[in-house]
Design a binder for these strands. Structure first.
Length: 216
DNA sequence: AATAGCGGCAACCGCATCGAT
DNA sequence: TATCGATGCGGTTGCCGCTAT
């Protein structure tokens, strides 16, 4: 039986106070990131390590770019989501200064709705084919979708079927992504502008591996 | 002015993954 | 090879502020 990550009785929960933020920032400034389990005690925080890590990564990190997403960023998120599904950390890794949480929230609150309004199913990035729903170019029904910002067609290659939902269901996209890594997607049009290509996906995965292996 | 409804965002939770032993 | 602990990730929740009624 695994021990809980922290003694929940002795930890604060909920919103962070300014003092807590300052303690965390000061500690990381001096000692650097890592060792999240021992950090709270060492920093004098009544928080669990996971909470500290999340607060730092999503809010306190100095290199965070806060504020609205640009059109380019939106476009890139949509394209990467079409390729990778709900792998938010991978997507965020291609957006400097953005966090997975931020991208995920933005997707769920803005981009999903935006795609739906455009008649695109956000789960699989294909045109929603409702018989009663008028479609922009019906002759192409289900054949291609237009990326909103760039107006660059994202070919519906039918090889990519992002998941209805993530985690267990990520297998489909994992398959797509791993197929990309194996170069087994013959007819896949990966010219997604903003340099999202098979090699980009390779690089994303590669970066991820490297960051895992590199010491903190 | 009050309040119900809604959307956005920060934070939590549980599971997966990876490295060390 | 199996097990354990630490960390990472994605889904979900809950709070807060804004807007419509």
């Amino acid at each position: 039986m695994r021990k809980p990550c922290c003694d929940k009785q002795d930890t604060n929960k909920g919103a962070w106070s300014k003092q807590e933020d300052e303690k965390l920032i000061n500690y990381i400034r001096i000692h650097g990131e890592g060792c999240w389990r021992t950090l709270p005690q060492a920093a004098g925080l009544l928080r669990c390590g996971k909470s500290c890590r999340l607060r730092w990564i999503n809010y306190l990190r100095p290199d965070l770019k806060r504020g609205n997403f640009t059109e380019d960023e939106e476009d890139l998120i949509i394209k990467l989501h079409a390729l990778l599904g709900n792998r938010w950390s991978l997507i965020a890794g291609r957006l400097p200064g953005r966090t997975d949480n931020e991208v995920k929230n933005y997707w769920n609150s803005h981009l999903r709705r935006k795609l739906i309004n455009m008649g695109i199913d956000p789960n699989n990035h294909r045109l929603i084919t409702h018989n009663h729903l008028p479609r922009p170019h019906d002759s192409n029904s289900g054949a291609s979708i237009i990326s909103p910002a760039s107006k660059v067609p994202v070919t519906d290659n039918t090889n990519i079927h992002p998941p209805e939902k993530s985690r267990g269901d990520n297998d489909q996209v994992s398959d797509a992504a791993s197929s990309l890594e194996d170069h087994k997607l013959p007819d896949l049009n990966l010219d997604l502008t903003i340099s999202v290509s098979a090699s980009t996906v390779d690089k994303v995965e590669d970066d991820r591996r490297k960051s895992r292996n590199s010491p903190k």
